[in-house]
Structure formats: C-alpha cells, structure tokens
Simulated scan of single mutants.
Amino acid sequence: MHEREFRAFVSIAELGRMDQAAQALGYSQPAVSYQIKCLEQSLGTELFVRDSTGSRLTREGRMILPSARAMLALYDSIKSVVAA
C-alpha cells in the first residue's frame, strides 16, 4: 500500500468519478484505475462499485475512508515537520 493509492482512493470517494479524480491529482485515468486495483488487491476487497455514472464506495470502502483520510493527514503532517 502506497500514499498515491490512498490519495486516489480518497479523491475518487470525494469526486465520485475516476476521470475527475485523475484530473485533480494530475494523473492519467488508467494510472488512477491501476492504483485502485493495487489497493484493492492489497486489502483483499473491492472498494468501489463502478458503472457508467461513476464510482460508488462499497460497504468496505465506506468503512476505511475515515482511516484513509486520517492516514493522509498524518502523512502530510509528517512531511510538513520534515520540511520545516
């Protein structure tokens, strides 16, 4: 599991679409899709239901979203301490 995978996860959860998340993150849509695939494989569960209207969190995705946000906040905090 990598920071980029969790950033992609949170961005898709917030925006509801992989293409919009990719644009917001500055990645290609296939790169974001791959990051989610890797995260899902690492966790052993699907995080999104994908359809023509976008991506919706699964039950498991909803359960880990608060932890993913907290982890990214902590990671950003650590980066700011090191940069100071």
Rank of each mutant, 00 (worst) to 15 (best):
Y75G: 09
R59D: 10
L74T: 09
K79N: 13
S77Y: 12
S77E: 14
L65E: 01
V32F: 02
A70M: 12
K79M: 11
Y27E: 13
S33V: 05
Q23S: 10
L72D: 01
G61N: 00
E40T: 10
R17W: 12
D19V: 09
A31P: 01
A70N: 15
R50C: 01
T53Q: 12
A22K: 05
Q23H: 15
S67R: 13
I36Y: 05
D51E: 13
V49R: 11
L57S: 06
G61L: 06
I64S: 03
R50W: 06
T58G: 02
D76A: 13
I78G: 04
Y75D: 14
P66G: 05
M18H: 07
T58M: 06
A83N: 11
S28R: 11
R59T: 05
Q20D: 13
M71C: 12
A24I: 01
G26V: 07
G54A: 05
K37E: 14
A83E: 15
R62K: 14
Q20W: 04
Q35E: 11
Y27Q: 09
Q41P: 01
R56F: 02
R62Q: 14
K37M: 12
S42V: 00
E40F: 06
I64C: 02
L57Y: 09
D76P: 04
R59P: 11
T53D: 03
V32G: 10
I36H: 08
D19K: 14
I36P: 02
D76F: 06
L25I: 00
R56I: 00
L39E: 06
S42R: 02
V81G: 03
S33F: 03
A21E: 08
I78Y: 10
A22N: 05
I78E: 13
D19S: 15
S67A: 15
K79W: 07
G16E: 13
S28Y: 00
S28H: 14
D51K: 07
G54H: 09
T45L: 01
K79L: 15
R50N: 04
S33W: 06
M71A: 14
S55H: 07
A22F: 01
T53V: 10
G26R: 07
S33G: 13
E60C: 02
S77H: 11
I36L: 13
A21P: 04
K79D: 12
Y75L: 14
L65G: 03
V82Y: 11
R56S: 06
S33C: 03
E40R: 06
G44M: 10
L39C: 04
S77P: 04
T58D: 10
L47P: 06
I78N: 08
I78P: 00
L39M: 06
R59E: 12
G44H: 09
R17L: 08
Q23D: 15
L25N: 02
A68G: 07
R69T: 08
L65A: 02
K37D: 15
V32I: 12
Q35G: 03
G26D: 13
V82K: 14
G16M: 07
L57C: 06
